[in-house]
């Protein structure tokens, strides 16, 4: 038996979200009295792979097939299925991110394993196996019972804190059999989005809305992000108007984010916007309108004109950063 974790690496490196997954998997394994096996693909050196041992993975399986350098949900699901069978995995954990979304549902059908997408906490019990997830765009949570012997969970980013739990990890190589039809849809090009912090990875997001009047006014937003080491995001009309790239759009129809700190400037706080950001740990709202609905959701608020408040706040952040 084992808890198997899909640990995606980016050009041979792991992101913090992967350590969250391993920490989570370790806690699940402790509940079940079993071990954590991590599975990864591609070119990753053993020392980097062993970093997962720090968070409790006792074995790391490296799938070596070069086909997997091109992403195909079919190929990945099939390779991970083989590892799941070899390790007799009872619970398989993915991140609720693009790879997880593409692979986990296929694996659920392959293994007839009940799947909970977007879990936010550890199972409340393992027998029966019940996990809490976000539903109705964060307006509620549901405790979902998985009825099958094998279980798949995808964990929302930033919902479980990393914790070191060092074990001596062994690395094993594995060559999977890739089904012949796995590349009927084939990637022909990868367009990298550049070095910018993606909105889902950022631990702090500075977000601007239509209240900022035009794209020329984003300088102060970017400055705040720069000072705080934050990412930038925006409301839907802002990306629809072309003021900011679509990749920054958060909300019901954009990206769902859960940073530690979300600073909303000139955003009214429409329900569809909040649906994408209400998983944030702490929210700040800066708005001229005391009745803006965002103030009801925010933890801290400043009623004021962004064009006066933000430059002053940036000075205060700068001073803080210089001293801390």
């Amino acid at each position: 038996m084992a808890v198997l974790i899909y640990t995606q690496n980016y050009d041979g490196k792991f992101k913090k979200s992967v350590f969250e997954l391993v920490t989570y998997g370790k806690s699940v394994a402790d509940m079940l009295g079993t071990d954590v096996v991590a599975v990864t693909t591609g070119n990753i050196d053993d020392n980097t792979a062993k970093e997962l041992g720090k968070y409790g993975a006792s074995k790391i399986v490296k799938i070596t097939n070069s086909e997997l350098n091109d992403f195909s949900a079919q190929a990945y699901a099939s390779a991970i299925e083989q590892v799941a069978k070899n390790t007799d995995a009872e619970v398989i954990v993915f991140g609720n991110n693009p790879h997880g979304r593409a692979i986990a549902p296929r694996l659920s059908v392959k293994l007839t394993a009940g799947f909970v997408a977007g879990a936010v906490a550890l199972p409340s019990s393992t027998s029966p196996f019940t996990v809490r997830k976000r539903v109705y765009s964060g307006k509620a949570f549901a405790d979902v019972l998985i009825k099958t012997d094998k279980k798949i969970i995808s964990l929302n980013q930033n919902s479980y804190k990393t914790e070191e739990n060092p074990v001596d990890a062994g690395v094993e190589e594995f060559t999977a059999e890739i089904p012949a039809n796995a590349y009927a849809v084939k990637p022909v090009e990868v367009i990298k989005s550049g070095g910018k912090l993606s909105v889902t990875d950022a631990e702090i997001l500075v977000s601007g809305g239509r209240g900022l009047k035009g794209p020329e006014n984003w300088g102060m937003i970017e400055e705040m992000a720069e000072i705080l080491g934050a990412g930038t995001s925006c409301s839907r009309p802002v990306s629809d108007l072309g003021w900011r790239p679509h990749s920054e759009h958060v909300g019901q129809t954009g990206k769902v984010v859960a940073p530690n700190l979300y600073i909303a400037v000139g955003i009214s706080g429409a329900i569809q916007h909040l649906a994408g950001v209400n998983g944030s740990k702490v929210m700040v709202c800066i708005n001229t309108d005391p009745d803006a609905p965002f103030f009801e959701a925010a933890d801290y608020g400043i009623i004021g004109d962004a064009f006066e408040v933000v430059p002053k706040l940036n000075e205060a952040f700068k001073k803080f950063k210089a001293e801390n």
């Binding site: 799947f115 019940t130 009825k147 408040v309």
Partner: peptide
């Protein structure tokens, strides 16, 4: 393969703390 056994509404948030716009250091 799965079944929702119970729903929960999020804990009500404490009221938003308001900060004087003249005093961003407080925030």
């Amino acid at each position: 393969l799965t079944e929702t056994v119970k729903y929960h509404l999020p804990e009500p948030k404490p009221a938003c703390k308001m900060i004087d716009p003249e005093n961003p250091e407080e925030l």
